[in-house]
Amino acid sequence: MDISVVIPLLNEEESLPELTEWIEKVMQEHQYSYEIIFVDDGSTDSSWQVICDLREKNDSIKGIKFQRNYGKSAALYEAFRAAQGNVVITMDADLQDSPDEIPELYRMIIEDKYDLVSGWKKKRYDNTLTKNIPSKIYNAATRRMSGIQLHDMNCGLKSYNRKVIKSIEVYGEMHRYIPVLAKWAGFKKVGEKVVEHRKRKYGVSKFGWDRFIKGFLDLLSITFVGKFSKRPMHFFGVWGMIFFLIGFITSLYLVVSKIIHPDFSLTNRPGFYIALTAVIIGVQLFMAGFVGELISRNAPGRNAYLVEEKRGIN
Rank of each mutant, 00 (worst) to 15 (best):
I3M: 01
S4Y: 07
V5S: 01
L9F: 03
E12T: 12
E14H: 11
L16A: 11
P17L: 14
P17V: 02
W22D: 06
K25R: 14
M27N: 02
Q31R: 07
I36H: 06
G42P: 11
T44I: 09
D45P: 15
S46I: 09
Q67Y: 11
R68K: 13
Y70S: 05
E78R: 05
A79K: 00
R81A: 03
R81M: 05
N86W: 03
V87I: 09
V88S: 05
M91E: 06
D92K: 05
D94V: 11
Q96L: 07
D97Y: 01
D97N: 03
P103E: 13
E104R: 10
L105W: 12
I110A: 08
E111P: 01
Y114C: 03
V117K: 05
V117T: 04
W120C: 05
K122A: 14
R124G: 04
D126F: 01
L129T: 11
N132R: 14
N132F: 09
Y138F: 15
T142H: 02
R144F: 13
M145F: 11
S146P: 09
I148S: 02
H151Q: 12
D152K: 00
D152F: 06
M153E: 07
C155A: 08
L157M: 15
S159A: 15
Y160G: 02
N161F: 08
I165T: 08
Y171C: 10
R176D: 09
I178H: 09
L181V: 03
A182K: 01
W184V: 03
W184K: 04
F187C: 03
K188N: 13
K188C: 09
V195M: 10
H197E: 10
K201Y: 02
K201E: 09
Y202F: 15
G203E: 05
V204R: 11
S205M: 12
R211S: 13
K214T: 12
G215D: 01
K227P: 04
H234N: 15
F236E: 02
F236L: 02
G237V: 02
I242F: 09
F244P: 01
G247N: 07
G247E: 00
I249G: 11
I249K: 03
L252E: 07
Y253N: 14
L254I: 10
P262I: 08
P262T: 02
N268Y: 06
G271T: 08
I274M: 10
A278H: 03
V279F: 03
I281L: 03
V283A: 15
V283K: 09
E293Q: 15
S296Q: 06
P300V: 00
G301I: 12
Y305P: 00
L306F: 10
V307Y: 02
E308Q: 10
K310A: 05
I313E: 05
